[in-house]
Simulated assay, not measured.
Amino acid sequence: MKNTYFFLLVIIVQFTNAQDYYFPERNESWQPISPVEASIDSNKLDAVIAFAKANEYSGSRDLRIAILEGFKSEPFHEIQGPTKKRGGPAGMILKNGKLVTQWGDTKRVDMTFSVTKSFLSTVAGLAVDQGLIANVDDKVQSYVWDDTFAGRHNSQITWSQLLQQNSAWQGTLFGGQDWADRPPREGGIDDWKYAKPATPGTVMEYNDVRVNVLAYSLLQVWRQPLPQVLKEHVMDRIGASTTWRWYGYKDAWVDVDGLQMKSVTGGGHSGAGMFINTEDMARFGMLFLKNGKWNDQQLISSEWIDAAITPSQPNVNYGFMWWLNQKGPRHWNGVGEDVFYAAGFGGNFIVVDRKNDLVVVTRWLEPSKIGVFMKNLIDAF
């Protein structure tokens, strides 16, 4: 009898815990939770939101101007894809999938820049889950039909190295040259252009051309536009709105099976990338909070998510296009080391804190302030 009672108690507890999480249907308002129910000090929470509003990204709200100013040190840099004037600070804080608070216009669609990389990484994860990519340590040359990965250097590059941004791929894609993207602060063009490349897998270099090579390679694997893949396998299934868009550069058309398809970008470095609202970003964060599961459906394997948030060898703060709050150069003091996040130019963040069952989305927060913002939020519990 005692064992039966214990068994029933376990079932009741598990059922109750499952019900604690809220997964809104498409076009459904987020279920609110009060600060008291969320165990948050309401005065401290108000101060956190005031901090976000008071520390708006200092760049121009005309993102075309902000992009050109932000990357003016790059030779030959130009806008090649769509841009959009942005809104003001906005954000959401979810506890167990329930809305603790929000600020700004959460339905406004804005550029997200390198937050796009975490969506791109997820498309790679779906390819692994479905067996289109057998192993992330496979050489990409085996999957891409043309000479993108030809030569002694590029032929050694693996999927994991592209995902961790340590591939050191060399070449030109859609007019973008790898050596001209985020060049070193010292030396001239010849020094950058003819420098000996790092051995693949040994040095992380944040480089959008190489990220776009990953997107191009995944297009070859899926043989359908990546926004369509993401929509079908993730965004529709988590109830995202119909307003998000994923763009590529104006000349990034590729012939696949006789059809013209746009190869999308992994950011907005030269325009393009993911245009999305705050609420859809929060849904995406919830999927990762729950280890790839939305309600009772496993959309992304937990094995992939574990791999995506495993530190890379060259950079302890970076996994498969997710930033990790490990002890390292980008560590946020006072915030758990198991926290991981997507980050984009201009202060766009999706932060996942499993320990506290939190998903936090902030938009247009001065990027240098995100660590303080998160510490203050955690202190509010």
Rank of each mutant, 00 (worst) to 15 (best):
T4L: 11
Y5K: 08
L8D: 10
F15S: 10
T16G: 14
Q19I: 08
Q19K: 11
Y21M: 13
F23H: 10
R26P: 10
R26W: 10
S29C: 03
P32E: 09
I33H: 00
P35I: 01
V36M: 03
S42K: 13
N43C: 02
L45A: 11
D46R: 06
I49T: 02
A50G: 09
F51Y: 12
F51C: 07
S58I: 00
S60D: 11
L63M: 05
R64W: 00
S73A: 14
P82Y: 01
K84V: 12
K85R: 08
G88K: 00
A90N: 04
G91N: 00
N96E: 12
K98W: 05
K98D: 05
R108M: 13
D110W: 00
D110T: 02
S114D: 03
K117R: 03
G125W: 01
A127D: 12
V136P: 12
D137R: 07
D138I: 03
A150C: 03
R152T: 07
N154G: 08
S155F: 12
Q156N: 08
W159Y: 11
S160C: 07
Q161L: 09
T172N: 08
Q177L: 08
Q177F: 07
D178S: 12
D181E: 15
P184R: 13
E186W: 13
W192S: 02
A195Q: 10
K196S: 03
T199C: 03
V203D: 00
N207M: 15
V213F: 05
L214R: 01
W222P: 06
V229K: 06
D236P: 12
I238T: 07
I238K: 08
W244V: 02
R245Q: 15
M261A: 15
K262R: 15
S263R: 08
S263E: 10
G273T: 06
M274P: 08
R283W: 00
L289R: 05
K293E: 00
L299R: 13
L299H: 13
L299C: 14
W304L: 10
D306F: 05
I309H: 06
Q313P: 07
Y318D: 12
N325G: 06
W332C: 03
G347N: 00
N348Q: 02
V351Y: 07
L365Y: 10
G371D: 09
F373Q: 04
M374I: 03
K375V: 03
N376D: 07
L377A: 00
D379W: 09
D379F: 10
A380S: 14
A380C: 04
